[in-house]
Design a protein around this nucleic acid. Structure first.
Lengths: 148, 148
DNA sequence: ATTTATCAATTACATTTGTAAACGGAGGCG
DNA sequence: CGCCTCCGTTTACAAATGTAATTGATAAAT
């Protein structure tokens, strides 16, 4: 809930922007040149396009630039984890509370997780189980709800 | 991956459209009038706006209409589950494979799950554990990757 | 000093999205 | 038989997004 003062507009990262951000996050800090080269190994975007995206990300408050020498060094202002967490939760908010479990199931089923990851999740689930409600109510519509 | 012939553009559902879809899914089938009334209890959208969204959803192949009497009855062409699953996976594709476990952890931590949900997830995890790799490699960049 | 190579900034433009008013056809009412 | 009402269709328009060329500033090379 980040104290409302969400200066940085996470959750408004567009698909293209995610691609840039991913590289920036991975490299921690990067020059446009470097970024452009890396991105062009994946995408058919022109240099110009990538620069535009970079500037938009700066305007959105997701990146900062620091002039070093004569080129700019870009750094993320939000962490990859924060961005992902916020986006994921936002996505799940679209879904009936009742159906979140099933979606999660499907998601997990299709992801590759390490043994360590799985163990941590198991731990978490075990803990949650102790306080979990027997039923999660549907929150689709005010009154009637035909959720199975 | 759904035989490429993705006629129906899931994954291109906009936030506003999700709101309509959620109601349609819940009601299975619905008249615009009904939908408009339900939506207006939540959003400040004009009738016109909602109608526009409805038509766009039809064009996108997410809804169909069937004329009954003189008004139209709208029905979803994709299931809520499919839409969510596809969207969720798409979102996770934005993320380094190595960090998916952590994101999942955070997500689960913040969701309310029923006891039954949790048990199913536990079952799934137990199964997955038997074939899980010790490590999941980072897939951020071609060569070097500074994922911690 | 000129030319050239680099960058970033400005400008551009089609498409999508958010939002909505205006138009047009068909029953229902008087 | 006209008029009103409902509903879907057309049209509208600003903002965001995808994509990119052009311009301008500056440093490097000759």
């Amino acid at each position: 809930m980040a104290t409302t003062e969400t200066q940085t507009k996470i959750g408004e990262i567009t698909p293209s922007e995610w691609e840039l951000m991913r590289i920036v996050w991975t490299k921690q800090t990067i020059y446009s040149r470097e970024l452009i080269e890396l991105l062009q190994q994946k995408r058919e975007w022109s240099e110009s396009t990538i620069k535009t995206l970079l500037r938009r990300l700066v305007k959105k408050g997701l990146l900062t630039t620091e002039k070093e020498d004569r080129r700019f060094k870009y750094t993320a202002l939000v962490s990859e984890a924060d961005a992902m967490n916020e986006t994921t939760q936002q996505l799940f908010d679209h879904l009936c509370a009742m159906k979140q479990g099933a979606t999660l199931y499907h998601l997990i089923d299709h992801l590759t997780l390490s043994q360590a990851d799985i163990k941590q999740l198991q731990q978490l689930l075990a803990t949650k189980l102790t306080t979990a409600p027997a039923q999660v109510a549907c929150d689709c519509l005010p009154d009637e709800c035909h959720c199975d």
